[in-house]
Computed example of a mutant assay.
Amino acid sequence: MNLLGYVRVSTEEQARDGISLGQQVARIEAYCALHGHVLLQVVADEGVSASVALAKREGGRAVLQALKTGTADGVVVVRLDRLFRDALDGLAFFRGTAERHGAAVHSVSELIDTSTPAGKLALTIQLAAAQYERDLAVLRATECNGSLREQGRVYGGIPYGCVAVGKGDERRLYRDAETWKWRALIVSELRSGQFSLRELAAHLADLGVPSPTGKKQWSPNTLREMPLHHDSLSDLPMHASALPEQRPHGAQCAVSDSAGNEAGVSTHA
């Protein structure tokens, strides 16, 4: 079988795990020699993340073109994650390009050869298992992130409407009076269902409310995620800069309830 080799590495992977292109090429060459395949060429995508779809990679496009034109009978990789960003991406490739053009997928590490029924089944199982592991990792990270934020600890990005104060392990999240009022408004409008995401994004732009990135335009995805952890963030204390100024003991100066409410905080302990 005439195969096209494909290798990919992101700069982060190479720095962390030492997964070099040269190592991948050597393993592909050894695999083809062992199984009697002809290695026509090795196509490489260097410094490309797995999150980029195969068709949007320079080397990936070359692989797809070779399979569609029949230049190669299949593609061989060290691991399936060199080719696909997720299970859906992999299954779309397999059900579309590979089956339509009679092309096989070979994986050295997973011992997969989709020119056989057993290989097709193995590919489907491997892709599903990989997607399951990714989904679990995302869920764990989300739960950990939410738990730490409920404790007022900084983890990941700073939520819109909050500010991080302190350094190291003492760094804590507080509500920011200037932006929290907008966050509260956004969440209220989304939960009421009166605005679609795009309508609300346009409304905020008209009001001149800057997005978390500082730009005028709001991303609908940013708005969609905002209500998810809003209730737990609401329990965070307001940052001291928004609290009434502490007067010397005995000073005859009171802060009215209305003033406190305008500042976005309660005047009661």
Rank of each mutant, 00 (worst) to 15 (best):
V42Q: 01
V43Y: 01
A44G: 02
A44K: 14
A44H: 03
A44V: 15
A44Y: 02
A44F: 06
A44C: 11
D45G: 09
D45Q: 11
D45I: 15
E46G: 02
E46C: 05
G47T: 08
G47F: 06
G47V: 08
G47K: 04
V48D: 06
V48C: 06
V48M: 03
V48L: 06
V48F: 12
S49Y: 12
S49H: 13
S49T: 15
S49R: 10
S49M: 11
A50V: 11
A50L: 08
S51H: 14
S51C: 08
S51L: 15
V52K: 02
V52Y: 03
V52T: 12
A53F: 12
L54W: 15
L54F: 11
L54P: 09
A55F: 05
A55Q: 09
A55S: 05
A55E: 12
K56I: 04
K56P: 03
K56T: 06
K56D: 14
R57M: 08
E58C: 07
G59S: 10
G59I: 14
G59C: 12
G59Q: 05
G60P: 02
G60K: 07
G60E: 11
R61Q: 14
A62H: 13
A62Q: 15
A62L: 12
V63C: 11
L64F: 13
L64C: 10
Q65T: 12
Q65M: 07
Q65K: 13
Q65P: 01
A66H: 06
L67R: 01
L67D: 07
L67N: 03
L67A: 01
K68D: 02
K68W: 03
K68E: 14
K68Q: 10
T69M: 04
G70Q: 08
G70C: 11
T71K: 12
T71M: 08
T71V: 13
A72E: 03
A72C: 07
A72F: 02
A72K: 04
A72Q: 07
D73H: 12
D73I: 01
D73M: 02
G74P: 00
V75H: 00
